[in-house]
Design a protein around this nucleic acid. Structure first.
Length: 593
RNA sequence: GGGGCUGUAGCUCAGCCUGGUUAGAGUGCCGGUCUGUCACACCGGAGGUCGCGGGUUCGAAUCCCGUCAGCCCCGCCA
């Protein structure tokens, strides 16, 4: 209401209610910026036209008092109009003001003084009610609402049915730690809160609901990050009688609908498709930021065998020489290059080699092997130009590609090579079905164990499992993973081969997945789907650094609720009833602040 | 589990490296002046466990150790 009062209403009576945002006193003449969900509206109180009691009341008002104003919408004097304000041409000349509730002095200000940082995140979370009143947070959560509506519209149009699945469930085969809920009726037994509705949605496919979706909370008891909360929201989708193409079409339509609603951006569909192997080879990441035009290239033929020991040694040991040309990277200082060398080490490489193409020649450790012929080939075959730098690494691909990917990303950001004019979306396809366990080397499923292999041959699954690709895919936007999914395996012989490759015996299989396998025995339709990270999507559209800024009541990095002070101790009686002994528990932390 | 940054007035910060008057600024709050402001302006005032504990020192916001909290990253986690 407040934000939508325009000149058309001039001369009309009006009654508005809201919070006192700011108040200005010009010696009897008062101005109040009244705020509600729609914005700000100026209320004027003049001693010339208002009774003394009204002026007296306004004199007493505090920021964040809730008031109701009756008066007339009036055009402001021409010279007193404020073009920076949506309602800056008008004001309400107050005839009557009622103070509905009074605010105590504020621990943090709702009004944000320009050129001042926000209050600390700790205080914003502790006083979340006040923080949420800020227009930015209002905008974020309303954006979230509209996006959820767009998801529901898009999917309902495609015949999807929204079905809720249990919160109190049993431990599922996913890899994260579970939040557990003790059972009072069954002492010593626990429900698990779902890490995702994965199994339930597959059961629903077997139940004849051929198109299911849910905007659903998922819970994982793992350490947090700016983009990770213990409870987060997924758009969970599953479809029966479909292949990858059907899933892609529905997903692209849904993302396009959300982006149109929330970002006002018309997404180019279908999305680019990149196989997992290509993503690793050309971008050094399974979630490449395609806004950066640089690609990793193979420099083995160009640079090996020319007497540069590090390169020659790595190649004769079976490795490759790969590199990425950083446009304008010759401007990087020694100090910055040392920083990137450190970054490469952090990502598992032995370090970063580099060469600069200076206006007057080549520099950097391998520059001594660059003769005229090689210089010409480098410029011709890799596109390197004066002013550029090339990052080089030599060794086995699984070590050098992720490190090159990290250098590509970090140096592109520093050199301004990220094209931020539009978002860049892609499907990453053909993920490996298994990955080698880091310690034992034995195959562990890269996704969940019910993923369809691209090649369903049981023999290959047993003999060479690490070579098998999966019909599994991610949606990547600007270098962030937004969604992940797969076509599920509905072939019993293939499924058995996968499970036995995982090293599970029949008993373990039955204990962990019995209820899903049972469902598969009575006529399982082919099916597949995906789950999208709703919080991350909203954070990107809102321009938020952290998903905390698009969640009404988030937890801290230590998984604590500062406002409600969770988690908390509970009474001994209650624990007794649940059969739980907390003698090893830490004492309740002191109330901060 | 590991690494880093931060913690000083209600709020945002300076001061800390290089220890030494009474710990400052802006804003908010309180009082006053001001009739067209919109970061109103101007004058005055109150407001401090320098996160907490210990140590070094004649002397600690400042140096050292520990600890708590918030944030970021690695590990972990679809």
């Amino acid at each position: 209401m407040c934000g939508r009062v325009t000149a058309e209403r001039a001369g009309q009576g009006i009654r508005v209610a809201g919070w006192v945002h700011r108040r200005r006193n010009l010696g009897g003449l008062y101005f109040i910026d009244l705020r509600d969900h729609g914005g700000l509206l100026q209320v004027s109180v003049s001693p010339d036209t208002c009774p003394p009691e009204l002026v007296e009341l306004v004199r007493d008002l505090n920021p964040e008092d809730v008031i109701q104003v009756e008066g007339a919408v009036a055009m402001r004097p021409r010279e007193a109009r404020n073009p920076a304000m949506a309602t800056g041409e008008v004001e309400v000349a107050a005839a009557k003001i009622k103070r509905i509730t009074e605010s105590e002095p504020l621990p943090i200000l709702v009004y944000q003084p320009p050129e001042e940082d926000l209050p600390s995140e700790e205080l914003r979370l502790r006083h979340r009610i006040l923080d949420l009143r800020r227009p930015e947070m209002q905008h974020n959560l309303r954006l979230r609402h509209r996006s959820a509506q767009a998801v529901r519209r898009s999917l309902a149009d495609e015949g999807f049915v929204e079905i809720e699945t249990p919160l109190l469930t049993r431990q599922t085969p996913e890899g994260a730690r579970d939040y557990l809920v003790p059972s009072r009726v069954h002492k010593g037994r626990f429900f698990a809160l779902p890490q995702s509705p994965q199994l339930y949605k597959q059961l629903l496919m077997c139940s004849g609901f051929d198109r299911y979706f849910q905007i659903v909370k998922c819970l994982r008891d793992e350490d947090l990050r700016a983009d990770r909360q213990p409870e987060f929201t997924q758009i969970d989708i599953e479809m029966a009688f479909v292949g990858q193409e059907d899933v892609f079409r529905v997903a692209e339509k849904m993302f396009a609908a959300v982006w149109e609603e929330g970002a006002g951006e018309d997404l180019a569909t279908p999305f680019t498709r990149i196989t997992h192997a290509d993503a690793m080879e050309f971008y050094g990441s399974d979630r490449p930021d395609l806004r950066i035009p640089w690609r990793i290239a193979d420099f083995t033929d160009l640079l090996s065998g020319r007497g540069f020991g590090i390169l020659d040694g790595a190649v004769s040991a079976g490795g490759r020489v790969r590199g990425v040309v950083a446009k304008d990277g010759a401007s990087l200082s020694r100090k910055r290059i040392a920083h990137y060398d450190e970054l490469a080490r952090e990502h598992g490489a032995k370090g970063a080699l580099w060469m600069k193409r200076n206006p007057d020649g080549w520099s950097g450790p391998p520059a001594r092997i660059v003769d005229d012929e090689l210089a010409a080939r480098l410029e011709h075959e890799t596109g390197i130009e004066p002013g550029d730098l090339v990052w080089l690494m030599a060794g086995p691909d699984h070590l050098i590609l992720p490190a090159l990917g990290a250098l590509r990303l970090a140096s592109a950001r520093e050199l301004g090579a990220v094209d931020k004019s539009e978002s860049r979306w892609a499907w990453i396809t053909e993920f490996p079905l298994f990955l080698p366990d880091e310690e034992t080397g034995s195959p562990v499923p890269a996704q969940h164990p019910f993923t369809m292999p691209l090649d369903p041959d049981p023999e290959r699954l047993r003999d060479d499992p690490l070579s098998v690709k999966a019909v599994a895919y991610d949606v990547v936007c600007n270098g962030m993973e937004f969604a992940s999914g797969s076509i599920r395996c509905h072939l019993s012989e293939t499924q058995r081969a996968i499970l036995s490759t995982m090293g599970l015996n029949d008993e373990e299989i039955e204990a962990r997945f019995g209820f899903l396998l049972e469902a598969f025995r009575y006529g399982a339709p082919p099916h597949g789907g995906f789950a999208a990270g709703f919080d991350r999507m909203i954070a990107v559209m809102a321009g938020a650094e952290s998903i905390r800024d698009v969640i009404a009541f988030p937890k801290t990095a230590a998984a604590r609720g500062l406002m409600e002070r969770s988690p908390s101790l509970v009474s001994a009686d209650e624990l007794e009833e649940l059969g739980i002994d907390t003698s090893k528990a830490e004492a309740d932390p002191p109330p901060a602040g």
